[in-house]
Design a protein around this nucleic acid. Sequence first.
RNA 1: GGGCGGAUAGCUCAGCGGUAGAGCGUCGCCCUUACACGGCGAGGGUCGCAGGUUCGAAACCUGCUCCGCCUACCA
Length: 1057
Amino acid sequence: MSSEELSKSYEPTEVEARWSKKWLDDGLFRADPHSKKPPFSIVLPPPNVTGSLHLGHALTATIQDILTRWKRMSGFNVLWLPGTDHAGIATQMVVERELMKTEKKSRHDLGREEFLKRVWAWKQQYGERIGQQHRLLGASLDWSRERFTMDAGVSEAVKEVFIRLHKEGLIYRANRLINWDPVLRTALSDLEVDNEETNGSLWSIAYPVEGSTEKLVVATTRPETMLGDTAVAVHPDDERYKHLIGKNVVLPLVNRKIPIIADKELVDPKFGTGVVKVTPAHDHNDYATGIRHDLPMINIFTETAFVNENGGPYQGLERFAARKKVLEDLTALELLVEEKPHKLPLAKSQRSGVPVEPRLSRQWYVKVKPLAERALKAVADGRTKFVPDQWTATFNRWLENITDWCVSRQLWWGHQIPAWFPVGADSTVDFENSTPFVGREPPAEGQWVQDPDVLDTWFSSALWPFSTLGWPDASSPDLKTWYPNSVMETGHDIIFFWVARMMMMGLHFMDDVPFRTVYLHAMVRDEKGEKMSKTKGNVIDPLDIIQGAPPERLPASIKNKYPKGLEPMGADALRFTLAALTQQGRDIKLSIDRIGGYKAFCNKLWNATRFGMMNLGDFQDDGRVFIKERALSLSDRWILSRLDRAVRETGDALERYAFSDATSTLYQFIWGEFCDWYIELSKGALYGDDDAAKTSTRATFVFCLDRVLRLLHPFAPFITEEIWQKLPMARTVNSIAIAEFPKPDDRLRDEVAEATMAPVITAIEGIRTVRGESNLSPALRIEALVQSDESMVRETLETYRRYVLPLAGLSKLTVERLGTKPPQAAAEIRHQMEIYVPLAGLVDLAEERERLKKEIGKSEAESAQIQKKFENPNYATRAPPDVVEKDKARLAELASRVGKLNDNLKRIAPVEVRVAPPASGPVNLVEELKAELSEMTVPAGEPDQQVREALDKLREGTKEGLSSQDHRDLGVAYMNMGLVDDAVREFNAAKEEDEPAKKKAPAAPKKTAPKKAAPKKTAPKKAVAKKPAPKKKPAPKKPAAAKKKPVAKKPTAKKKR
RNA sequence: GGGCGGAUAGCUCAGCGGUAGAGCGUCGCCCUUACACGGCGAGGGUCGCAGGUUCGAAACCUGCUCCGCCUACCA
């Protein structure tokens, strides 16, 4: 790691290309079914073979790759199996559209065989793209096992399943009302229909009652379907129409007699006119009614939704044209009573977007009830778990109300149904009424043709967890090793389409659940929260983010924000972002800026490595000496201990599928602790000439970086591999991808080191705060004084001044007991220490006063808040003692803090000072200060009466009897005369006078909350008096123990992103 | 209509009974020899509204208001 030069910033593109190729060449991700390791398997949800990956796929790949790499590194025999889906309707549509565009031909012009050739060619051409995208994302898939849903093996599984289900009576053929897409000319399952609220109309049409002048007025949203009406229904209890039940109406326009029936399920007497026209062949409700009442069913549309021969004079009209004509004709007959606006749910085909036309048709169905029951039970028994578990309820509800699954599609691209129809004597085939034979091959006797229909794409997808592993060959080693899959990870949008169906098929054919855990992720949306879709133009190709893209390649919305295009972000940054945005049950809003932030994080890591390369010299870790056996410095011990926490937290987070917790732990550790603190602290040793210290620091650096890279590897595989390969250390494997995932190691934990570092960090931060607040240039070396009555703090700061000096930018550090304060110094009161930075000549003291006042205000506010709790007598008695203790301690700390801040404020009071009036009680410094500010007119150099008297006393040698107030007054006087040292001495003396009093009854609470009623103050006062006692001393670890704040009180947890 | 999720700092979100947090953005000082894709510091919130439970509620309960998503046969 010494000689090589690293580029100044991380350039992902070249690195990623190199490693994705290398991993592939080395076959690192090839799974071995005969391995002795415990198995772990995931099958990739197969994307549409002719599509290209979008960010949703990138999220899928990222999460699965994180799990996969983590498990692989943790000693599992991992299989992550890739594949693609033939995506029947979608693919067929794309190819048809292309055919029409380039050759002006329909698929019918080509014929089935030729058309399918074209689809396969298309698949060959575009199928590669998805593989390529996955490789560039870093997905550690076993490409040797890649499957396609129309591969021979998978097709064999599909046939087997169909035939067996048929034999078991779970697949049957029936003539029912189905959802028909008149553009694609195929049946659809319920799930492939989207209900969309639409603004339509509700028309009222008068139907004349036969043999009467009465008319029944029906309400409808689809008047054209009246051509197929076979009844009119009223509610049996509706007094308005009771007398008409059993009579007929004459259907206008077609003059067909149809009965008036009573049906309480269909009819809600309160809606519309309370009369419903019944069109069983074109409406799902009417269909059910038709069955109940044994009504005739008249189909009035062709496959393409044009009126057929049953529509009389309307034959040949498209359905919406027919509606218009029907309405016109009704108007002419004066039978159209009313048209009013009406919102209705319109069922549209998910694929073509066209309103679905319910159509009577003979189709194949799967009887799912029995299958669903097993799936429900498996989940109830905990054999499969949902993460997040809120999906369990969704899953259950759907399966509990499931209806039979229409699996036949009138398409060409897909698994042709293994059913055969006899060819009649006249060479025709009666697909409607003849009985098909189900089997791989037709019977030897007679002439048969195969059912032209294909199966729903999801039918083959449902078998994916086992069809990809060699089923139906039960002896397949892959199947034995990796079924059930460990995890199914996919988007929650296909829980019904896919997850539920895999559960049913897996249980039925493998007699075990297909996967133990289902992790469902959210949908990826754009930064405004809108769904990414081609029509909205906000779809981003993951590769454009990874490799960068010129503006013209970007969708308009992105181009607007990034007119210069996108810089290459790298796959690692994209992956880390996606993982960080993962949160349970919520959509993911992806922002490019956020990715940029994680790109910066990669760059940070890169540069930390660069720093190492420049400073590790010829160090080489041969791995023979355990790190803790070296002579480690405090910072070494500290970072190792922090590292162990990060290891623990990352592992825990992964166990819980809490990917975002893992990313924030890693981010925080790498940037906030390793880079911001450890590297800075290590510079002393690395730049110095103590060879032993140098070596231990180098060893620690390499040790930490190695662990942290391995921890990070599942999230950011490329940069971690690149860097890991450069570390000067012995390796047992040649890729980080198969190195061991770090495990917690108690030997690294060092509570003493963390506790010792705490005051060092506190001091550095305190001094930095003063610098920052005072706008001191970072280049300026300043002096600082730290006072503490804790000997441990003093000793630590003395011992580790070599840490404090450079990190706080000091030229001099003085450490002492609480005592004399420097004049004109900024003060910062921190836990167990007071920090003073003389500012004379450096900065305007007025600003420092403002700052102190603000600090005081804050502390007082917090103090008041806590005191309020004590005002409630129940608080002390009923709240847990530890909570009360904590509040008391905090109150004491605040009180002392306020006192100290006030002291300092006083000390750097303006030269033109108004001396406090004589006061019998405790001094209210805040009030006093306010007064000072408003009366800044007292001329300098002329101490008032009080001071003069005090000075007189002094001159008379009666100093002995001076009160603390006297000392203060004297101090002010000396200040006014420019005798700083004398002033300080007096202030100090004032303080000492105060001390004994404080120990009995602290003055601080009185100062901070003088308005409080006396009785209420008693409780906290006692507490305060007790608290600063020795008891607290051995607890400098408090800051380190705070879980979220790893370093100290307010450590480095302010990192970017 | 039913179900689920959400409403916390300008933005995106953690927190889910005991001192309001992070990242981004903002402001200030800095090109300090790993990193300006950087360093250091700071400001910023009556936790959607109204009740209730509790010593104590952003968190638990009830109701309401918005915003998403799923699901459903009001013609």
